[in-house]
Design a protein around this nucleic acid. Structure first.
Lengths: 307, 307
DNA sequence: GTCGTATCGGTCAACGTTTACCGTTGATTC
DNA sequence: GAATCAACGGTAAACGTTGACCGATACGAC
């Protein structure tokens, strides 16, 4: 009987009306993903991770990029609430906006936060220990013998930037090396600004022998700046990035970087959001999960000159 | 009165139920975007272009990446039809699958095709003349004096690959240069395969003095292969890419490439789809629009050695 | 033959809007 | 003062599905 109905449905190629289903089920089967002007590779990893989990589910993914959340969190909140979503995945820096979290909690919109850095007890959290990751890469540079080390920070509104810097500081203090604040420049995760900052660092009379960039795009920019100044990498200058994005492999020399399991974290965030939405949340799915970083030593770092 | 109602609604923070609106309006206000395992920068440009048009509209964007359309077009068709969309944007190579077009036409799902290469009279078409673009970049290389020219093709299932090659052929024949088929290798638009193909080309006894790669990722791979073989770019080898993706600017030397207005084309496709959906289609919006490419001569191409 | 059980067809309310309709009221016009 | 019109409150149908319910039928166990 069941079979006959299915066959007849197929014959008429009948598809149930999703709007009517949504109306009765009181949900839209839409999951939102919001992020901010980040590098293309990061965005695509994020999307693919979430989509990987959504495959073979009824849920569909709506992309909602939004720039400058920090200055107008309530606008993003309205956008998310108007979008008719069942749940939303919040990537940095939106996941660290308390006002935004307040808004969506008030409207009872379930959400999962990907690598948040503040209020770690709010909502579903998929975390990576940025401090530890920053520590690892800084320790690598220090162990090679570098002592005069430049830093290119990311966008200050991203809490990741602060976390990674904190990790650098820990590694420096453990190695008994004082951080030279005049060698710490602030970028915004883009190649162009990274280039400018790298130029200022390399133009200083006492040039650093290594640069820690907080993402790969800025690390590649630092290599470009070095090349334009006739400084060879890694012989005269070591450069380390962050993210293990595609550009870190296609750059020359290939970048020493830290792999962030962005795809896995996005998958995980979607997994836990679905668990909450469907009420199938096992204890395992609901508890906080930490993802681990991985240092990838490639060709852009070496011992400092004269060592 | 109207004002009072609005105020009361705001006070109760009442939001109309989208599912009920969809049910009565007989549309979901969802627009799909489907594409296939392409470079991150291309995907993001595509999405941002479409999102740019959708901003301040009621429509939301659902992303539906799908790999290997060529071998299973009807599966993608089912996916699209089940997604409850009002319309769909088809990027290559899905836009060139006649079976897929048949399916979605049968179900009366409006669609817009971004840079299709076959059946140009079906559906809404936003086109770029790939043949002309291929012609332009090949003519540039020929005008520099190159005669022994290697080619790295993209994925054969992308019609763009054939179109660009056709443009190369025209330029060669106009210049009276015979194409050396043994110097034509087939890649798949990825860096890794591009590297392999470049290595084979550069290992030939009579090394080409220039390489035409069908996208930037493969062009960057060709530069990496040359570097690994001790061949300097552009002194001993010129390399030209395609797409003007971000990597073409961050690479060293910066790539000579062809700018494809991907973002503008995606905007345009969304614009025309919305015009059809809302029935506000002016004659201007409904007629076919051609976008023009632009040759960007940068540092990776020069005259061949000894000229 | 009786009882319990499973399966079937059919009816109906409900989900939250929108649109149309009707009747009433108050203001405007000649 | 009568006629015209806009604004308003209220009622009801419709969108396409789901889930509950009822009654009828068929099946096996006792």
């Amino acid at each position: 009987m069941r079979r006959k109905v299915k066959e007849a449905a197929a014959a008429l190629d009948y598809h149930p009306n999703l709007a009517a289903q949504s109306l009765i089920a009181r949900r839209s089967f839409l999951i939102g993903l919001t992020y901010e002007r980040p590098s293309p590779s990061y965005v695509v990893e994020l999307q693919n991770g979430a989509l990987g989990r959504l495959e073979n589910e009824r849920y569909r993914l709506v992309v909602l990029p939004f720039n400058h959340v920090a200055s107008r969190p309530e606008e993003l909140g309205k956008l998310l609430l108007r979008a008719g979503l069942d749940g939303v995945l919040l990537a940095p820096p939106a996941c660290d906006q308390p006002l935004l979290l307040d808004m969506i909690e008030r409207q009872k919109l379930p959400y999962a936060r990907i690598t948040p850095h503040s209020d770690l007890d709010r909502g579903l959290v998929v975390a990576m220990d940025e401090v530890a990751a920053g520590h690892t890469v800084a320790a690598h540079i220090l162990s090679l013998g570098h002592r005069r080390i430049g830093v290119i920070l990311g966008d200050p509104s991203h809490a990741a930037s602060r976390g990674r810097m904190e990790g650098y500081r820990q590694a420096f203090s453990e190695a008994g090396v004082r951080i030279d604040e005049s060698l710490v420049g602030t970028g915004d995760f883009t190649h162009d600004v990274g280039y400018q900052v790298a130029r200022t660092l390399l133009d200083r009379p006492l040039r650093p022998t290594a640069i820690l960039a907080q993402n790969d795009d800025m690390a590649v920019a630092a290599i470009a700046a070095a090349r334009d100044l006739g400084v060879s990498v890694p012989d005269q200058l070591s450069v380390a990035g962050f993210d293990n994005s595609e550009v870190s492999r296609t750059a020359w020399p290939q970048l020493t970087t830290v792999h962030q399991p962005v795809r896995e974290m996005a998958w995980d965030a979607a997994d836990r959001l679905i668990a909450e939405l469907d009420g199938t949340g096992s204890a395992a799915a609901l508890q906080r999960r930490d993802h681990v970083h991985e240092l990838l030593v490639r060709a852009s770092t070496a011992a400092p000159p004269g060592l």
